[in-house]
C-alpha cells in the first residue's frame, strides 16, 4: 500500500507537501518503480535552482541493465537535490518514500497536485490494491 500523505503520477513518481506556506514539496519514485528497476546504481539529476515542469523529463535513473527517464510530477523551481543519492543510490531501493526522496521543489501553484492520483487510485493503477 502506498502512503496516503502524498500524490502519484502514472509514471510512478510521488509528490508530498512538506511546507504548504512555502509551497514546498518533496518528490521521489514509488516502491513499485524501484521494484521494477531493480538495484538502482545512478541518478542523473538537475541542480538546485533549475526549473522543472509538470510531466517534463527531469532526469534519469539507472539500474544495472536499464535506464529510465524521470518525469517531474510538478512545476516549479528546485530547492534542493538529495545529495545522499550520489554515493548511496540504493537508498531509493531501501526506502523510496522517505530517505530516498529525490528533490524538493518550490511550486508555482499547489493546486497542481490536485490533478495527480491519490494513493488508492495509484495502487489500483499498479494492481497493488
Amino acid at each position: 500500500m502506498s502512503p496516503e500523505d502524498r500524490k502519484y503520477t502514472r509514471e510512478h513518481e510521488w509528490a508530498k507537501v512538506e511546507d504548504a506556506d512555502a509551497k514546498l514539496v518533496s518528490v521521489g519514485i514509488t516502491h513499485f518503480a524501484q521494484d521494477e528497476l531493480g538495484d538502482i546504481v545512478y541518478f542523473d539529476l538537475p541542480n538546485a535552482g533549475d526549473s522543472v515542469a509538470y510531466m517534463q523529463k527531469m532526469g534519469e535513473v539507472e539500474s544495472v541493465k536499464a535506464v529510465s527517464d524521470l518525469f517531474s510530477p510538478v512545476t516549479g523551481r528546485i530547492d534542493a537535490v538529495n545529495s545522499e543519492l550520489v554515493d548511496h543510490p540504493e537508498l531509493v531501493n531501501d526506502d523510496p518514500f522517505e530517505a530516498g526522496w529525490i528533490m524538493r521543489v518550490v511550486l508555482e501553484d499547489l493546486g497542481e497536485l490536485d490533478t495527480l492520483m491519490s494513493a488508492n487510485e495509484y495502487d489500483e493503477y499498479t494492481g497493488a490494491s
Partner: peptide, 8 residues
C-alpha cells in the same frame, strides 16, 4: 555484485 560495481 554488478550493482556494487556500477555504484562505486
Amino acid at each position: 555484485d554488478e550493482a556494487g560495481a556500477a555504484r562505486h
